[in-house]
Nucleic acid binder design. Structure first.
Lengths: 259, 259
DNA sequence: CAGTGGTCTAGACCACTGT
DNA sequence: CAGTGGTCTAGACCACTGG
């Protein structure tokens, strides 16, 4: 039998199936965490080919209603509470109390934070990073790439870049755990007194790689934040490039109505 | 011939094709506005079936590199320069120079800004807004809803809420154009000296309504920003709720490494 | 191992666009 | 009209997960 004979109906079959499943989710027939029927099950139930079912499921994924795990199945998403990132998180008093910025933050949002170090070592500075650091493009810098989790779920991935001249004499910056107060505390101990941070915030859709790293469904939005840490002498001693799952974070900023 | 024999390669074919086309776009071989080769052309060129080419093209679409028009083809998107929103945009000196925040900002980003007033008048404060303003939920406030354009393209939609007690004696706040320096200048002229702004930033996918208002394709990300304007006396005299097309804006913040 | 989703083929027909 | 993308089929093999 031919196939395109369905495209003439008002709505595409795969959208009808997606709508049907979405309705079941919203009605509670498919509660949060419940498995979505398997593809073969759906093929039978709706009498369509595999490709059609897959498009329907893909639709639900991009609308964030379900998440899919290869080999296990698709499951109705539950929306966890978001984390807040306030510009207060870099308060010097937090550093002195021995807390790194991430922990100082995660502490307030209920949930067990954890960090996985992906890479620490010398690297060539990407062009935009080099420009921010005030070093030649391709110059050697220290890169520190980490992935952060809350309750075991990946939420953000951050790469810090520090000029080689700055870190050369600070062995802790090469350690997985730089000690109480984090990298910023070590920098200040070595005379790099921090004066100002600047953050650049963008939002966009996750790339394939980011979606994989953060366990996001394709089409999920991410927040892309790049922060410069500048010392009193005006040198940028760190640039931190962070990609966050957008549904996990709220950013808070406070600033004066200055002249 | 079988087919799955390709899935065993490191990368999926459709992603390789997408990457290849993306490289051509970034290199300029496929400049902005240029048509992407048709699907049948790509099938021949890469020696794959239609479905594979379609998945590659879909990939480029979700990464915003191209846009597709049924019956005409796919075309390389031109990325208009993004607008920057820095926390400097509320500098009092800008207000005194007679510039509203939006124009002070848009001025630097090349492109003709315009504003359309959607609504100005009394309204019941939504719960979250009322809480920020420190008024009872449902209390009457002044709402000012505007849509902003650049070069005729809608980029953001903002609704300001001001307590009735504050605006009652400031007739300009009811005008479509509140005069040089905008609402904030009028507030300060009437004794509400602004001391501090706080902004809350979220990113998420556009709702259907937002996609329509901002002429976005479904699944596009937006930045949702809510700002409190607080006076020296500690009163929140305005809450501004803004939804921006994420690909049109970069947010800049600067803050001290305070104690 | 069986069951799941992921990729791919080689076609088909339909709907939209422009000449 | 020819050419474009959009939907769909009925299979195939691969990769991942869990018992």
């Amino acid at each position: 039998m031919a196939s395109g004979d369905v495209a003439s109906t008002a709505k595409a079959k795969y959208l009808q199936i997606a709508d049907d499943l979405a309705a079941q989710i919203h009605s509670g027939a498919l509660p949060a965490g419940a498995p979505v029927p398997s593809e073969s099950e759906l093929m039978q139930r709706y009498g369509v080919a595999s490709g059609t079912v897959r498009k329907a499921v893909a639709e639900l994924r991009t609308t964030q209603l379900i998440e899919t795990h290869h080999g296990r199945g698709s499951f109705v998403r539950s929306r966890p509470p978001v984390q807040r990132k306030s510009s207060d998180r870099f308060r010097r008093s937090h550093r002195k109390a021995g807390k790194a910025a991430y922990l100082a933050e995660a502490e307030q949002s209920g949930g067990k934070p954890s960090v996985k170090v992906l890479f620490i070592g010398p690297a060539e500075a990407p062009e935009d990073i080099a420009e921010r650091l005030g070093v030649p493009a391709g110059a050697q810098v220290l890169a520190r790439k980490r992935r952060y989790f809350r309750d075991g779920v990946p939420t953000e991935e951050a790469t810090s870049y520090l000029p080689w001249d700055v870190v050369r004499d600070i062995p802790e910056t090469f350690a997985e755990n730089p000690g109480g107060g984090g990298i910023y505390a070590r920098l200040e101990e070595h005379g790099h007194t921090l004066a100002e941070f600047t953050e650049t915030v963008r939002a966009r859709l996750a790339t394939k790689a980011e979606a994989a790293a953060l366990a996001l469904s394709p089409g999920s939005p991410v927040i892309h934040l790049v922060r410069n840490a500048m010392t009193e002498s005006g040198q940028v001693v760190e640039v931190c490039d962070t990609v966050m799952a957008a549904d996990q974070f709220v950013l808070d900023y406070r600033f004066a109505a200055k002249d």
